[in-house]
């Protein structure tokens, strides 16, 4: 909420400065903002609905039972799969991860889940492809999966 207020304040201040300096540039800027919004809206609505479905089917206690203390490598694979589907912002991911750990999930598995949730997005892949082209989108997602797995490995070695 506070984030939003700060963002709006900054946006309005800059918009005001821009408007007093050059009306036409400001108009052009707003027009391109609207087009961007218009372009991402269909994808966004679908993503939101998908994430909503996924989160209501996969409750924290269910996830915790899949990736518990003794789930080992299989647990890591499951977390990678679950985490790779959606792209979720960090202000939702960390509270979710915290709940999972309290429900009995193991730390490395939760680490890989959180990291992939934030950086790997199969649902948003079509959107990413439209933006950067297929090859780059795939490569970026693969690199994010590798990063998440290595991160989990480090957590496993250092913290358990």
């Amino acid at each position: 909420m506070i984030n939003g207020i700060i963002l709006y304040t900054i946006a309005i201040i800059y918009l005001g400065i821009s408007f007093t300096k050059d009306k036409y540039k400001t108009k052009a800027a707003l027009l391109s903002s609207w087009k961007m919004f218009h372009n991402v809206l269909p994808d966004l609505l679908a993503i939101m609905l998908f994430v909503g479905l996924a989160l209501s089917l996969l409750t924290p206690s269910l996830i915790s039972s899949i990736i518990g203390e003794n789930s080992g490598l299989l647990g890591i694979i499951y977390s990678t799969l679950i985490g790779s589907i959606a792209l979720v912002p960090s202000f939702i991911v960390f509270p979710l991860g915290h709940t999972l750990v309290q429900n009995g999930a193991a730390l490395p598995q939760v680490a890989v889940l959180m990291s992939t949730l934030m950086s790997v997005g199969l649902t948003t892949l079509s959107m990413e492809q439209k933006t950067f082209g297929r090859s780059f989108a795939y490569a970026r997602n693969i690199s994010a999966i590798i990063m998440s797995l290595l991160f989990a490995l480090i957590i496993w070695v250092v913290m358990t």
């Binding site: 939003g4 900054i10 800059y14 800027a29 903002s33 961007m36 939101m48 909503g52 479905l53």
Partner: peptide
């Protein structure tokens, strides 16, 4: 599902406009 989706859609509709306005301004 409806509750979760509704909440995240509202969150996004709230966060996106200022970000896109800033991107548009930067572009110009």
């Amino acid at each position: 599902t409806v509750q979760l989706t509704g909440k995240s859609i509202l969150d996004m509709l709230f966060l996106l406009p200022p970000i896109f306005i800033l991107v548009g301004l930067l572009d110009q």
